[in-house]
Design a binder for these strands. Structure first.
Lengths: 257, 257
DNA sequence: GCACGATGTACTATAATATAGAACACAAAG
DNA sequence: CTTTGTGTTCTATATTATAGTACATCGTGC
């Protein structure tokens, strides 16, 4: 499961594999797990016990099976906490202003991962999954980040991407994606106009860290019916303003071009 | 760090200790970490590399230091996911109805851990921390759960609790807590009337799993100024209704008393 | 109600593995 | 320009994780 030719401690690696088993299974037994990763039952047992002692796994005494533990959740909430603490008030303000669902994502190689969302209270609204992962090329947030990467970085990503045509409007080739990104870069924001899902429009702007690298983004998503052109433009303006403020708080200094 | 006389794999245990180092530190270097847990630099390095290869840690190439990785976040979102998926729509409905912040918690020994929240969009509102942990005895959610535990379970918890007087109204002894819980049990819900913080009122009702054990709870929190008696009663009624529906969906069957 | 199969768990010897020491390259700081 | 501290690599040793065996427990189906 581990990648590089780097040094890897076998037992730790196996323990992490065990945790991963629970991604698609709420409850698993020792034997079940040991079969999933091809370990001896007693080997798996030792690893599982260690995880349990640390509350990364919890044992269901009624079934004898295990599930993910609360400590894993608690530790997970500590990831990228500065960004989240800084950004969340802005997300809330955006929802208050526009009554549409707002998201905060960070980049993870070719994907964006949804870190936080604040939902509008409307009945018809866009609902994404915190902890979810989507390809960069078909999301406004992904494009907002990509459009501000250095040429080399961008190239490297584009070359490794596999494009899937989610809708008629999905941008599916490197060429047109690069053109579109160039426009976004000039505008300072990106749009996803039903490129992932028909009926869904997103607008996003990038967040920079103190190395001046765009690594995160904020988006606002709504149904096409409510997202007319002037509204979108207004939203974009606010997003740009807010993401700049967030970037500043993270230590970003606007470069002189 | 591991508790029982149970079997514990040293390297896995150490790896988890390393992750824990980042609870109060956003970025740490190899030497720093090795000193924190008293390990040889190269030992720590091996463990860290393994965690990095699995994206539980990320390396900041600019500083050479490490921070918590996105995979930890992703895995954390999988914890207790059934409960959260079932409960969140109810949380949202509650916010829509009453315009106050709503929380979902699960029990963790003597504490409750905040799993999900949906905030009201009002400017003056109660804001808790997802991933945060509070003692049971001074929160409505904690009391809602405790009031429905079997005598033995409850006793065991109470005996191990250390009471801290957060405000004048905090219930600080076993005796009066038990009396208060008995009333709550009959009412079907609990209140926290400025017991944790002056100006803050919470109302909560318990959620049962399919072993008929109360293990989670939902609460609604607001400032005293808005939480008059009749409003509280109305909220309590709704909370009871919703928590029962959630419990049912989790497989709970109402017992015949 | 009994036997079967499968489970979670405990113990132990061995061999594989994690470990810590020494040493390196590199960067920052004095 | 040294000095001190970093992250990282390599290697020998012995500690440690491992898997085999064994057992108690539980539920199922004969």
């Amino acid at each position: 499961m581990a990648q590089e030719g780097n040094i890897v401690i076998q037992s730790v690696d196996r323990a992490i594999q065990i945790i991963r088993c629970f991604e698609d299974n709420e409850e698993l037994g020792v034997t079940e797990i040991s079969r999933m990763i091809g370990l001896h039952k007693s080997t798996a047992f030792g690893l599982i016990s260690t995880l349990e002692a640390n509350k990364l796994l919890e044992k269901n005494d009624n079934t004898g099976k295990y599930r993910l533990g609360l400590e894993l959740f608690r530790l997970g909430t500590k990831v990228n906490s500065t960004l989240r603490h800084i950004a969340v008030p802005y997300l809330e303000q955006l929802v208050r202003m526009y009554q549409e669902t707002v998201n905060l994502v960070v980049v993870d190689d070719l994907y964006v991962i949804y870190l936080e969302k604040v939902e509008s209270t409307r009945s018809m609204r866009i609902s994404t999954m915190v902890g979810g992962r989507l390809p960069m090329y078909c999301t406004a947030v992904g494009k907002a980040i990509m459009s501000n990467l250095h040429a080399g970085e961008l190239e490297s990503k584009l070359d490794r991407m596999e494009f899937i045509k989610h809708t008629d409007k999905t941008i599916c080739d490197k060429r047109s994606l690069m053109e579109s990104l160039e426009i976004d870069r000039r505008n300072g924001y990106s749009e996803d106009n039903e490129e992932l899902e028909i009926g869904l429009i997103c607008i996003a702007a990038p967040i920079y860290n103190h190395f001046n690298i765009p690594f995160a983004a904020i988006s606002l998503s709504g149904p096409t019916s409510r997202m007319n052109k002037s509204f979108r433009r207004e939203i974009a303006r606010t997003l740009i303003e807010y993401t700049q403020e967030i970037s500043m708080k993270l230590g970003y200094r606007k470069e002189v071009r």
